[in-house]
Design a protein around this nucleic acid. Structure first.
Lengths: 109, 109
DNA sequence: TTGATATTTAATAAAAATATTAATTACAAA
DNA sequence: TTTGTAATTAATATTTTTATTAAATATCAA
């Protein structure tokens, strides 16, 4: 039940290409909120909110040094996402015959 | 640029647990819109819209027989999602084996 | 044709997401 | 302490999402 909401948040966070772009940037190393904002066409406040959403989805985490906030990719979370995807991918590779039925149109529908 | 929107749609579709539940049902085989609606606490109209959204994200497709509409899982789409997740492979360097298992689906299960 | 069934869509309303500007908090350094 | 910088938050407006009921469309079946 709880993991459902967790996946809700993760997938929703990933559903915005601006946020995925932020993740791409962070994949190269930590960046401050301000540095992230410089690369996008929206205000610092907007980026701050995107960052917060990504943080709530556990896709990233923050560390603070003085008044500067660094954002880091949370590597562990991808395991959870991959598990969900892998579940389905595994499913269809195990049922190739069924897939063929769909493709061939002789599945009754 | 176009694939960005594609991923937007896919991830957004996956961000709702009701829609993920629909996918779970379809992973067991085709179902009509009405059959899907029977299993949820919302109206048929609401399910019809969820189904349409899943269809627009290419996560499912429909086939029609008479007045009945069957919904089918689109197995191929998971490859695309897995590719995005797989892109982040390098961040797991120390968990590469696990990742390979999840993404490649050859985890022996 | 008439009437029932399966699904979609229109009209509507409520809740959520997103962006902006401006105010606020937190910290650094002169 | 005062001033300036980094980031967050509040107030606000706009757009999007989601659900409902009811009407419309399409098909079956007598």
């Amino acid at each position: 039940m709880e993991s459902k909401k967790r996946l809700d948040h993760i997938f929703f966070a990933l559903s915005d290409s601006r946020r995925r772009d932020i993740l791409e940037e962070l994949s190269e190393g930590k960046k401050t909120v301000g540095q992230l904002a410089d690369n996008f066409d929206v205000t610092l406040g907007a980026i701050s909110k995107h960052v917060k959403l990504l943080e709530n989805a556990d896709l990233i985490y923050k560390s603070k040094r003085g008044r500067t906030v660094y954002c880091h990719m949370n590597f562990d979370i991808w395991k959870e996402v991959a598990m969900y995807i892998g579940m389905h991918k595994r499913f269809w590779s195990n049922r190739l015959d069924e897939l063929e039925n769909y493709i061939n149109g002789d599945d009754g529908a």
